[in-house]
Structure formats: structure tokens, C-alpha cells
Amino acid sequence: MDVTIRVKRQDPDAEGERRLPYWQEYPVTIADNATVLDALIQIREDDDGTLSLRCSCRSAICGSCAMRINGHAGLACKTIANTVVQDGVITVEPAGVMPVVKDLVVNFDLFWEKIEAVDPFLKHMGREPEGEYIVSNDAMLHLSGVTACIMCGACVSDCTVLEVDPTFLGPAALAKAYRFTADPRDGDSDGVSMERLWALSEPTGVWDCTRCNECVQACPKGVAPMDRIMAIREQAIQQGYTNNNGARHTDAFTDSVGHSGRLDELRLPIKSVGGFTNMPALMDYMPVAFRALRRGKVPPIAHKNVENVEAVRRLFRQLEPNPPEPQVSNNSPFG
């Protein structure tokens, strides 16, 4: 197959034009089942020794070759070229969010700082058993779905929050955190990781995710980081960590819909920050409120019920005594 690989290149250390990003096109002939990585290796070996990229295992286990292919992050070694070629061209760019070191190589410092920030090692309170911990196979299989993460950074590359807010822990670190909060061996004797759940409920943690789903799309290993973030929220609320904007927002949302059948957009933000006692946070809203006022976008002050509100309330009542099962298995390590 003949294909042109269009590579976004950059050498921030160079003098002159190459300091800035530029595009270079490489026409190559590759096998029909070749991966994008095969094509890039061929370029590096046969055409252009100055092209820099990371790669090693060629089988989606080392996590080195995450990059943007036609605009979306993925592993070059797991992407068959002929499935992504568009009009004879495949566009390849470095991963996003992280700064470029050279060409397709990005600086992972930010990525690893966030991983280290979640205390990424098992913390068992109390004595270790003499032999192995006794835990269910289901609990381990569930965790293995998360430990399958190869730290390739594809999720971080495409995270729409990290793009604008580098303080967010981000999808990879939070999935890593979940790997411990959901581990029956981590935390107290019931497998509850209280300290972790407290820390993760703070700003920069699980409540900063906007649920855009990009990380789920980008992940080449099916880890679904966003789903793990949602599961941590659930765990944290269950353990009573509700004194934060995220948990209050969730409550206010539920209260409003459960009561009137629709969202009370005026009171939602007030309840989310903890009501009128939290004046500093409310003051922060003022510029937004003024802009909304000027453009006539203020929600109605009188909040009305939907027509058939009783039906909605009935639904809520049906759910209340039996709250949905948490998505988390927290089997005790001792039984």
C-alpha cells in the first residue's frame, strides 16, 4: 500500500524555523496489514534518521508510542494503517497536553507527577496476612481491568480539562487511584480507603472531571478512566465525603429534579457551593451572573413544577429505599 505519512515535527532546541512546529510528508510503501508504527519505523530506518519518536514493544504493552493519529490519541502500534488512511494520507502529531521534546516525543513529567500525587502503592492498614490475602477472583478481575493501564498517556493527551487546567489530577492518575480505592486489600479491614477518598474529593480530584468521555475513547486498553472517576465519586459519597461542591452539586441536582421534575438552574450553583453561608464562592459567581443578566439569560426566579410532576416524584420514591448498587466491589479481604 502506498501512503503518505504527514508528521507534525518540532525541535524546540533548534535555532531558526525548526524551533516551531512544521509539517513534513513522507511517502512510504507498506504492507497491507502494517501498523502506523511500522510506517514510522520504516521512515526512521530508511528515510530520515532525524525523526524522533518513542516505541519499543510493538504489541501495545509498553505504552511508549501514544500519539495523535488523525487528530485523536492512540497507540501507533495498535493502529492498522489502512484503517485510518484518508485520501492516501495519515496525519500524525505528538500527544497533546504535554510539551514537545522533539517531533513525536513529549515530556511526560506532568503525567508522572500526577501519578505520584495519588500515592500509587498499596496501603494496607493493620498486619499483612502470612500467606496471600484471601480475596475473590471477581474482585481481582475487576481490578485487572484497571491495572491493564499501560500509562501511555493517550487519555491525558485528549483530556479536555487538563488542556485548560493543569492542576486536575487527570484520567490516568485517577484511574490509578481507583485501582487502590477498589482494592479490598487497600485501606482498613473492610477494604475502605478513607484517606484516599477524602483526598480525591478535594479540588483537582474526581469532581473536576467534566465527563466529556474523551479519555474513554482514547484509551487503547479499555480502562475507561472516566467510568473509574465516576466510581470513585460514588465511593466517596458513600463514605460521607459530601462536604464539597461536587457532591453538593449531585445532591442539589437530584433534589431539584426529584421535587419539581426539572433543574432549578438558579439555586443549583448556590446549593453546590454550600448555600448563602459561603459568600466568597457566591461572589465568584457575580461576574457570570451580571453577564447572564445583560444578555437576558437569567433563569426564572420562580421555579415551576413540570406538568406531571407526581410521576417523576413517584419514580424517585421507588428508587429511594433501594439506592442503585454501587459499581464498586468492596469485598472484605477477610471473608
Binding site: H124, E132, I134
Partner: peptide, 20 residues
């Protein structure tokens, strides 16, 4: 092996919850 399990490796288990 047990060291690695205590460090947190998610080894597959048998029906009794022991290492498979």
C-alpha cells in the same frame, strides 16, 4: 511470590479466593 502479592499484584484467584 507472596511478597509481590502483598505489594498489590492482582493475581487471578481460585474459587476459595487463594492464588490460582
Amino acid at each position: 511470590l507472596i511478597d509481590m502479592e502483598h505489594m498489590g499484584v492482582t493475581f487471578n484467584r481460585d474459587d476459595d479466593g487463594r492464588l490460582g
